[in-house]
């Protein structure tokens, strides 16, 4: 295992990164002491059946794995309860370990009132990459969840505008940060070049594309059509 992992530089660009060893799927270590962290203790008491495991890493960072089914309920409680009051959602991201292991969605929270940090993780099996969106709780999750969707392919149920954000909207090669995604992309260099050259540049300035997101409901279809040609209605 170590032999495969060492080796410098980009010696495996045509493959995905080396997948992690499946033997450590339980994330090592023993159940941590919940009494050190008020919120973890409260979580374990209130949502006893939804807390999967609890670890302390990197010298005192508490990580709690929770049941993805209950994630929205738990997160909204953590945000609203005055004893915890995690008003700041620092980060929403995901981790793929490869080797068929579940994708982890990670919520990094901070309470500006209690000056307390907490990290929650939800394990999603590869055949059911779905979790409730938390945009209704934290507006910051809008773009962060779009990024996770774009790069990992996790669907956030209830997200108002779930589409790719960093990769092009018509990107056909999949989700780049998954472990089975090769560094150079799924298509050959020739195919990538062919697709790039075959692109219709005008396409990216069509009004249907411009109006992606929040606009379309407010623009009448006729207007959209004329705008596409760079004209205004009535001028022709």
């Amino acid at each position: 295992m170590t032999d495969k992992k060492s080796g410098s530089g980009l010696d495996a660009v045509d493959e995905g990164p080396i997948s992690s060893d499946a033997s450590s799927a339980d994330h090592g270590g023993d159940e941590a002491d919940a009494s050190e962290h008020t919120s973890v203790a409260a979580l374990k008491q209130r949502f006893a059946d939804a807390v999967v495991r609890h670890r302390v890493y990197a010298g005192g960072q508490h990580v709690v794995w929770i049941d993805p089914e209950k994630s929205h309920e738990i997160l909204s409680w953590l945000q609203a309860d005055p004893d915890h009051h995690y008003d700041m959602m620092s980060d929403v991201t995901a981790v793929d370990y490869g080797n068929g292991r579940p994708v982890n969605v990670v919520y990094q929270m901070f309470s500006t009132v209690h000056k307390r940090e907490l990290r929650l993780r939800c394990e999603l099996p590869l055949d059911a990459l779905e979790i409730d969106s938390i945009v209704d709780l934290w507006k910051v999750a809008d773009w962060l969840e779009r990024e996770v969707f774009d790069l990992f392919g996790v669907t956030f149920k209830g997200h108002p505008d779930l589409r790719r954000i960093l990769m092009p909207q018509d990107y056909a090669e999949g989700h780049p940060l998954r472990k089975d995604f090769p560094l150079r992309g799924r298509f050959s260099r020739a195919e990538q070049t062919r697709r790039a050259l075959a692109q219709d540049v005008e396409r990216f300035y069509r009004a249907e594309d411009l109006s992606a997101g929040h606009i379309p409901q407010e623009v009448a279809p006729v207007e959209v059509g004329t705008l596409a040609q760079g004209e205004r209605e009535g001028n022709s």
């Binding site: 994330h27 090592g28 270590g29 670890r55 890493y57 960072q61 990580v63 990290r119």
Partner: peptide
């Protein structure tokens, strides 16, 4: 590295 994850801000 040891097993685990780390968020540092």
């Amino acid at each position: 590295a040891p097993e685990g994850d780390c968020y540092f801000a």
